[in-house]
Amino acid sequence: MSGFLKSSIGRKIAMALSALFLMIFLLQHFAINITSVFSESLFNELSHFMGTNPVVQFALQPILIFGVIFHFVMGFVLEIKNKGARNVKYVKNHGAANSSWMSRNMIWSGLVILAFIVLHFIDFWFPEINHKYIEFLPEDPNRYYHEVVEKFHSPIRVGAYVVAFVLLAMHLLHGFSSAFQSVGANNKYTRGLKGFGKAYAILIPLGFIFIALFHHINGH
């Protein structure tokens, strides 16, 4: 297995599998968050379940954290190796003639997303861990909705979220179909898959932006 992960294609497949896993997670995260727009009680109920269920907390959460770290570390490793594969740069390179900006700048959109995840952890994950496992504060199953609304009071935070999700959309515009190509799925379904990927890449981040703006405007 270590030999597989040392090979260029093995790493490419591992990168794609972690990406597919993260895209499924993102969809699940969105499905829960969007309920906060429609129903305070349903959002609280779902959040309480996710926050207290031992399978989610002690099995799925560590897998997710591993998936996130793996995707970022492998992304950096590949970027460094790829940069080293051309020791003298072109004086004139017309990249736009043959490839999309998104595909050529995955490392930059990825870095913005990484910065966002750090902010997101400071905002929600660290206080949550502190609440449950460090200070052992009393559990209120109705606290989640108010915590979200309070966070989105700040226009700076909402602005940062919007920028991050625009970059996430760009990352996904290349990443979605790229992940399928990497695992070897390029066949008669590719066109449909690419269309679905574009819709996913735009609609899911747009949905997250909508949620942030909704609570920001509604909370004032």
Binding site: S8, M106, H174
Partner: peptide, 22 residues
């Protein structure tokens, strides 16, 4: 062939599609 390709120092494909166009 993949082993030799890696040993030669070629980089890793990130599916930009530039190769297909050119």
């Amino acid at each position: 062939m993949v082993k030799q390709m890696d040993e030669e120092g070629f980089g890793n494909c990130t599916n930009t599609g530039a190769c297909e166009v050119e």
